[in-house]
Amino acid sequence: MAVFIDLMLLGMLAITALRVIFLKDLFAVVMLFGIYSFLSALIFVNLDAVDVAFTEAAVGAGISTVLMLGTLALTGRKEKTNNHKSWLPLLVVVATGAALIYGTLDMPPFGDPNNPAQQHVAPRYIQDSPQEVGLPNMVTSVLASYRGFDTLGETAVVFAAAIGVFSLLGLPKRDRAAIESGLKSHLVLRVVAKLIIPLILLFALYVQFHGDYGPGGGFQAGVIAAAAIILYALVFGLPLATHVLQPSLLKVLAALGVLIYAGTGVVSLFLGGNFLDYNVLASDPIAGQHLGIIIIELGVGITVFAAMLAIFYAFAGQAERKNIP
């Protein structure tokens, strides 16, 4: 059954990808990308990667698609037909694909528990991490503790992206007297949004702190919380949103999250451990691990929330500027 579902999803993905190649309407292309992202999230669930599926759905189908649509609003939705078609890209792709297929021929069989990937490093994460780190969600244990340095880098990447977008687009000024925008005239939308935004924020908090036990964690929580405010900005207008959460505050928060994460590592240095060694944070190693993971997940959540929202503000600010004649 799982094989059948897998095949069906993969087939749908292939059709979506092919449609994207030939479509000229960029709005449709972006929507198809959202679908692609959702479908791949389903595949991830089918392959037991629930945390990844969660993130892919929130990021690929959520944030990325919103940003792409925002860009289209500024650049136009039609792709122009290009007359001089070249065979070179097709040639490169066929060659690359052939190389990859050649590479698959010696791959270990799909799903076999005796594959090298399942044998060497991974068993410790599966067998010992619930005792060593004390969390039932092994993905969180590996992410935040064993490979916590990767995650620190990942937080820095988000921060770097925020810096990039700030420098390219600038942040909108906080301005109450700005033109009316948003979808205020739609009563139904307003009411629904008012009902749903607190729930989304609550859910974000749940995801933030429940990541140790179930799928979730700082990254997903940050994205979801940002989505709540994005919804607010879409319905009630950017000026109002920037009044509630100021762009300059977001800049500070984005920086703060990175500092919290890296700071945790420095604290463990001073307490006599290695960088990011949470064992030394409390008298009992398990408690230390737990404390460390909660703090760094908070750092990730804050940076991701602030960076994603600020990036959205920057794009939305451009669109508002365009609307002013």
Binding site: L152, A156, F159, I163, K251, V252, A254, A255, L256, V258, L259, A262, G263, G265, V266, L269, N274, F275
Partner: peptide, 20 residues
């Protein structure tokens, strides 16, 4: 014994501080 990690961590911490 922690010298090895400092060339990464020093600028990493300094980058957000620069913004502030």
């Amino acid at each position: 014994q922690h010298l090895l990690v400092l060339p990464i961590v020093l600028p990493l911490i300094a980058a957000p501080i620069c913004i502030l």
